[in-house]
Nucleic acid binder design. Sequence first.
DNA 1: AGAAATTTGTCCGTATGTATC
DNA 2: AGATACATACGGACAAATTTC
Lengths: 137, 137
Amino acid sequence: MPTPHYGQPRYRAIADELRERIESGVIPRGVPLPTESALTAEFRAARGTVRQAIAALRDAGLVATQHGRGTYVTPDQHQLAENSETETQQRKVAADAELAALFAVEVGAALVEEQILIRANGAVGTVVRTYRMPQTK
Amino acid sequence: MPTPHYGQPRYRAIADELRERIESGVIPRGVPLPTESALTAEFRAARGTVRQAIAALRDAGLVATQHGRGTYVTPDQHQLAENSETETQQRKVAADAELAALFAVEVGAALVEEQILIRANGAVGTVVRTYRMPQTK
DNA sequence: AGAAATTTGTCCGTATGTATC
DNA sequence: AGATACATACGGACAAATTTC
C-alpha cells in the first residue's frame, strides 16, 4: 500500500472520527479510548498514524494518555458548573523530592501551596493544588 | 543500533541541544534551522526522531515550520513572559490522609492525578496538581 | 514557463524500552 | 512474573510545497 493522502491526511480523518464519537457520547467521558492496537486494526492504519491522531486529540484537550494504562477521555468540564462551589486555602509546605527537583531547590525547602476544593452537590469532586516558590521580592 | 532510551529520550536531548544553540545565539533569531537531513546526519538519528525534537521546539514556540521552506527560529519576543510552555502528565496515586478525607475514601485508595508544569524560559515556575476520583460516572 | 532539486509532510512496518496491570 | 499498553527509535517510501535552474 502506497502513501496517498489526497485532501485530508489519514491521521486527521481518524482524529475527526474519534472526536465525533466522543462528542456524540458513543465513547463516554472518563472511559478509556480503544487501545492503539485496537485502533490500528479498526482503521487499518499503522500505529504511528494512530498515535498522530491521538496526539491531535490530546493537544485539543479531549483526552489524556497515561503510559502503560491507556488514553482516557477527559471529563466534560461544562457540566460541573451548576451546583459547584469552591473553597480555597493557602499554606506553606515543604518540598518533597519531586517538587524539589522541579523547582531546583533542596528537599524540604519552603513552597507556597494553594489548594482549591471543587464541590459538586456537597461532595468534593476535584482537588487542585498549585505550588509556587515563595515570592522573595 | 537498537533503540535504547535510558533516562532522557533521544529526541529530547536533541531538542535541548538545539534550544541551547538558539538561546545562546549560535543560531540567531530569524534564520532557518539546519534542514532535517542535516540534523539527521549531525546527530546520527532517524528523521522521525529529529522531527520529534523539532516538534517539541515548535510546541514551545521557539521555531516555526513552513512546508517546503524550512524551520525558522522565531524572532525574539524578548518582551518576556510570553515564553511560557506547559507540560501535562497524568498518573495514578494513592490517597494520602488529607485527600482521603476530602474524597471520603480510605487512605491509599487510587486517585487520578494530573500534573501540569508551567515553565517560563525553561525554568518551572508553577506546578499544578489536580486530583479526581477515577472513573466518574 | 517548465523541470529538477530541495525540504517538510504523511505513512508504513518493525523492533525494543518502560510503565502498568 | 507474565501480559498488556503506551513511548521511543529506526529506515524506507511517496506526497506536497517551495525554490532554483
